[in-house]
């Protein structure tokens, strides 16, 4: 929510939103409340996709489907009557294995899968917001291919000790001639070079922007109970 305020994600004109890996649906609820208040209800379309079924939310179309399947992308687009989405959000956090490197890898794969389906459903100039559990440097390079601006942001409401942050991608502009393709998903195969360079420093580093009000409650601070 602080992310929205900082980046004005849901400004006027945003009416078609996709929420990937939506369960349990906190973003969907927020999106629904915010957009349906601002726009005339008929224009607003929110599609929430998850592997699991989730509780119904007013004004949210729910799809139970796999984001790695093309049929899911087609189904999303069909709900926007052929139009593409203005913004795609993905708040999914995969199950953790306890192995730090493996968790990081799986998280990256989830975001890549989300990015892949996003290339099918997002309009040019659209926005993509995804959750970052751990540091995924590698991912940024891929995102930069598809978006003009990529920023990592951490809500001030998130604890200082937590590594959780969001990657906010603005202005979708895929490389010329890029054809979205589900059958040959965007694996990280093609971008491996930076990652291998373990001792080097020339990796892609994206800007960091803290968002939220400093006067708000500090989640790290201990407050008196009185």
């Amino acid at each position: 929510m602080q992310i929205d305020e900082e980046f004005k994600l849901l400004q006027k004109g945003v009416s078609k939103v996709v929420d990937l890996c939506a369960a349990p649906g906190s973003w969907s609820q927020y999106l629904s409340r915010k957009l349906r208040a601002a726009e005339s209800e008929s224009d607003v379309k929110i599609v929430a996709v998850d592997l699991q079924a989730m509780a119904p939310i007013d004004g949210v179309i729910q799809l139970q489907g796999d984001i790695t399947k093309e049929s899911t992308a087609t189904e999303i687009v069909s709900h926007f009557s052929g139009d593409k989405a203005d913004i795609v959000v993905c708040d999914g956090a995969p199950d953790v294995t306890g192995l730090h490197d493996m968790d990081e890898y799986i998280q990256a794969q989830l975001v890549l899968a989300a990015l892949n389906i996003t290339t099918h459903v997002l309009r040019h100039g659209g926005k993509f917001v995804c959750f970052r559990g751990k540091d995924i440097t590698l991912l940024y390079s891929q995102l930069k291919i598809f978006f003009k601006e990529v920023v990592v942001s951490k809500p001030r409401s998130s604890r200082n000790s937590s590594v959780e942050a969001f990657v906010v991608c603005l202005e979708y502009s895929p490389p010329e001639g890029y054809i979205p393709n589900m059958s040959n998903p965007l694996l990280d195969h093609h971008y491996d070079l930076d990652f291998n360079q373990l001792e080097g420093v020339n990796r892609v580093v994206v800007p960091f922007i803290a968002c939220g009000d400093l006067s708000a409650y500090d989640s790290d601070k201990t407050y008196g109970l009185q």
Binding site: D135, T137, Y140, V163, V201, R203, V204, V205, V206, P207, F208
Partner: peptide, 8 residues
Amino acid sequence: HNHQHSAQ
């Protein structure tokens, strides 16, 4: 120096 580390 914002561009040398990619995490906190």
